[in-house]
Design a protein around this nucleic acid. Structure first.
Lengths: 212, 212
DNA sequence: AGACATGTGTGGTCTGACCACCAATGTTAA
DNA sequence: TTAACATTGGTGGTCAGACCACACATGTCT
């Protein structure tokens, strides 16, 4: 049998070839998220490469969030959607100093986008449900509110981006904000009216922005 | 000296800890792109971990395009600018349709946000300059246009997010779009008029959206 | 001065050996 | 029978050591 290493005399990098093989394996066998992939030892044997090379490939995939390894069990394909992408941004690219202001601004814009999408996709029932929740819930949190907004927005990627920004924002700003229930209720009313302008006025008040 | 492995009895995953150490090392020593990082053997020794674990961490970073390894020479920091990542993800993700839609939608919203910011921060001179460029430039590209928009928007984070999404989008969709100069010029006119509504109508036409 | 040989350090890879953990199976005791 | 326990095999996690291929600096010879 041809060794993997034979096929790339010039390329070198066994682990890259392993990635390629893995892709093929996944598509050929029709593996989906949650499915188990062969063990490291089996891959090592089937591809005629060392186990350490297999591991290098798998570790890289793991860092990308494409697979999940469970010691004693095996390695499984993960939910691919919207993944890491942004998370990696935050850890490596966001180190910028001046970025703090950007984070604040970006978060606000993203939240408004979320509101736009939610506005399009929520019906009166949904809005009423959220409204009830805002009214009744004990430990009301701003984050919780936007979690629901982004859930309604039905865009996983947007949600991920917002989540990262939120976390990052919290780690930057230590000022505990006061939440006024009526602001959120007013915003929800505006959404129920499908009045985008009014929604953003409400949001601006919520965030105490002079102008959006 | 404390072994790396001591500090995460519960976490496990040596290679993740190594990544953390590397980040610290990079910031503490003020390493920039192009700089050389310690050899695998030295890292292995300094952190009291096996060389294979070090390699797993480095391979992951390499796949992300954050470092570059040259056999016989060493390992060097690379330009952090995202991508790479995008290509990889796309080759693994081609399955999920919903994810594609999310990318498409998110990109559009981010671009509109960019336009909003640019609208606030560009003066007539800036707009005129871009307009000239659109009119005169030979190889006019949609990407180039938005590069300028985001530059004017003056939000580095937003720009980064957009850049990733753009690459990601390109890797998903193979349809080469036609660019009509007049659409961009019309959009710029709308910006000069400070007419946000008109700007988004123009953008919608640009992207051939039925509704934004 | 130029060409060549050598040594050292680096990444690339493989092998074998443990360990920790999990799940299934078999075994024992109530 | 059934519940609790012990065993066993498979899996990922890690390490140490051994080569190889390669790049660079140094030394050596012509």
């Amino acid at each position: 049998m041809a060794k993997v290493s034979d096929s790339f005399v010039s390329n070198s990098k066994v682990y890259l070839e392993i990635l390629k093989q893995l892709r093929e394996m996944i598509t050929d066998d029709g593996l989906k998220q949650g499915d188990k992939i062969p063990s490291e030892r089996e891959l090592s044997e089937r591809l005629n490469v060392g186990r350490s090379s297999v591991r290098e490939a798998l570790r890289a995939l793991e860092l990308l969030g494409l697979i999940e390894t469970r010691r004693g069990e095996g390695t499984y394909l993960r939910d691919f959607r919207g993944n890491q992408l942004v998370q990696l941004l935050s850890t490596f690219i966001l180190q910028d100093e001046k970025a703090k202001l950007d984070v604040f601004e970006t978060k606000n814009f993203i939240e408004m986008d979320g509101l736009r999408l939610a506005l399009k996709r929520m019906d009166r029932l949904n809005i009423a449900a959220v409204k009830d929740w805002v009214t009744e819930s004990e430990g009301f949190q701003d984050d919780e509110f936007f979690y629901q907004i982004f859930e309604a927005a039905d865009n996983h990627l947007f949600f991920k981006i917002w989540e990262i920004l939120k976390d990052y924002y919290h780690s930057l700003s230590s000022s505990p904000v006061e939440y006024k229930r009526e602001d959120y209720l007013y915003l929800l009313d505006a959404m129920a009216d499908k009045d985008e302008m009014k929604v953003f006025l409400a949001y601006g008040q919520l965030r105490k922005l002079s102008s959006v």
